[in-house]
């Protein structure tokens, strides 16, 4: 056994490999158990017209995005132009205004543009808990049958849209 001295080196390399791989992971991105599960149903007051309700049932049969946002969320501001661009391409984006104040939210939409086909208000964050929201912004891709297909945590980037969201939306739309 001449190669015995190589054993600690091999153990070190294996360990270093695992630890190095760990460094490439983002601990903030906790995989959601809701992927491929039915999206939790909700029917909430519309932000613009609190007297009216809007909910998941209204989106049945469509491929759509649920974007969780708030006017106090800085990263939401960062992703906003991407959502506007997505909406312009005809993707229905529903906004879930999470733990926000109505006036601040309305002003935010007025100032920065409104990409949302509909915005509903979740002032106490209950629907947010149903969706496992722990950091805004979060974006869910929901298919025609009302099943969550993908979750993006953090601001949506042009890269995410091009390489993940649009291809998946196209695929789900084809699937009928």
């Amino acid at each position: 056994m001449k190669a015995k001295f190589l054993v600690p080196l091999a153990i070190f390399l294996v360990l270093a490999g695992f630890l190095g791989y760990g460094l490439t992971l983002n601990p903030r991105e906790v995989p959601s158990p809701l992927i491929d599960k039915p999206a939790p149903g909700f029917s909430l007051a519309r932000l613009e017209a609190p007297g009216q309700q809007f909910g998941t049932e209204d989106m049945r049969g469509k491929v759509w995005l649920l974007n969780v946002w708030a006017s106090w969320c800085v990263s939401c501001r960062q992703e906003h132009p991407q959502l506007v661009a997505l909406a312009r391409q005809g993707v229905p984006v529903i906004g879930l205004n999470y733990k926000d104040e109505r006036d601040a939210a309305l002003k935010w939409l007025k100032d920065h543009g409104n990409p949302y086909a509909q915005t509903v208000a979740d002032p106490d964050g209950r629907i947010g808990i149903d969706y496992g929201v722990y950091g805004t912004p979060e974006t869910f891709l929901i298919d025609r049958g009302g099943v969550i297909r993908y979750k993006h945590i953090g601001p949506v980037t042009p890269d995410t849209i091009r390489n993940v969201l649009l291809p998946r939306i196209a695929e789900l739309s084809r699937a009928g």
Binding site: R28, A70, W72, C76, K99, E101, Y134, T136, I153
Partner: peptide
């Protein structure tokens, strides 16, 4: 960081 807290609200 995607995580925000409503500091103002708090």
């Amino acid at each position: 960081m995607p995580v925000e807290r409503p500091t103002f609200q708090r």
